[in-house]
């Protein structure tokens, strides 16, 4: 068995993929649906934007099948900003991902927010030049996606709700899973790998390093600067904000405040001032009002 960790054996392509994720750390990635919103996000200090046709709150409201966005719409946003542009494809939809790759998208999100195209398999992401980000609810799910080639992981939360509960639950679970395997003797690792459904070689690396082999961001439910700072406090390395910005009363102000809050997440005095007079947050849906069949975090295998 090689002495090197799995990460150390990866190729230059893998390094440049996870390298871009490294550059997004301490930043905010915002969902935008128009070039105008993309410019607002960039001016506010977003580290990247996610181009999509409908934010998760609207996908929930409208129902129906949510698919990859129109290439024209994505290209409009690419032309509007200089920061990286991400776009979503459906879970398992190899062809949508191939189309996005031809458009020089900076990151593809194989996302549970869209309606899954495959109820058993995800995309083999290693085959692509473009890096992928995928959602997870626990360590096993994170390591399965990394095993398939994801260069960034985000905990899922429950998109489009404005309720931070699930985001916290998923981040806590991931951190506890990691702490547990670090605390246990090595003869337990194989059984843990079986229980978590995690690739063994990746679990070994996590046991040795105490962290995922790729950057770990947070998503799903961030509506306020304090929400974003909380996720950083719990160990997120950057934050995705979907509906939270453009479904609020004053998107410019709120976008800037969330960017500031992620940088100064451990400075409560600054966070107090950052949180002042932002206008109303998105109304949101409490998790206790959301029927189990309407929850999307469970999509992903």
């Amino acid at each position: 068995m090689s002495e090197q960790t799995w990460s150390a054996r990866q190729t230059a392509t893998w390094k440049s993929k996870t390298g871009l994720a490294e550059m997004l750390k301490g930043g905010v990635i915002m969902d935008v649906v128009t070039p105008e919103q993309a410019r607002i996000a960039e001016d506010a200090g977003a580290a990247a934007v996610m181009a999509l046709e409908r934010v998760p709150a609207d996908i929930r409201k409208d129902g129906g099948v949510a698919r990859m966005s129109d290439p024209d719409m994505i290209e409009g946003i690419q032309k509007a900003v200089t920061i990286p542009v991400m776009a979503k494809c459906r879970i398992g939809h190899i062809t949508e991902a191939r189309i996005l790759e031809t458009m020089d998208i900076d990151f593809i999100d194989e996302s549970e927010v869209l309606t899954p195209a495959d109820d058993r398999y995800h995309i083999w992401k290693e085959d692509f030049r473009v890096p992928f980000v995928c959602g997870c609810r626990n360590l096993g799910e994170a390591l399965r996606r990394i095993g398939e080639g994801a260069a960034m992981i985000r905990t899922k939360g429950e998109a489009g709700t404005g309720d931070i509960l699930e985001a916290v639950r998923h981040m806590r679970t991931l951190k506890e899973d990691i702490a547990l395997i670090q605390a246990l003797p090595k003869e337990t690792l194989m059984t843990r790998a079986k229980e978590l459904g995690a690739p063994f070689h990746l679990l070994q690396e996590v046991a040795a390093t105490g962290r995922l082999p790729v950057p770990n961001f947070s998503a799903g439910g961030v509506a306020t600067p304090a929400d974003a700072a909380l996720m950083m406090e719990l160990g997120a390395e950057a934050v995705f904000v979907g509906s939270g910005v453009f479904k609020s009363e004053n998107p410019e102000k709120r976008a800037r405040a969330i960017v500031d809050a992620v940088t100064f997440y451990n400075d409560p005095g600054k966070l107090r001032d950052i949180s002042r007079s932002l206008g109303g947050a998105m109304t949101g849906i409490g998790m206790d009002e959301l029927a189990p069949e309407l929850r999307i975090a469970g999509r992903g295998w």
């Binding site: 490294e22 550059m23 997004l24 750390k25 301490g26 930043g27 960039e42 001016d43 506010a44 200090g45 977003a46 580290a47 990247a48 200089t82 920061i83 990286p84 960017v259 500031d260 940088t263």
Partner: peptide, 16 residues
């Protein structure tokens, strides 16, 4: 001064 988004860093440098 690390890599990242220069627009973000400049904005935060100025703002703070």
């Amino acid at each position: 001064i690390p890599g990242g988004e220069s627009t973000v860093m400049t904005r935060l440098l100025r703002r703070f």
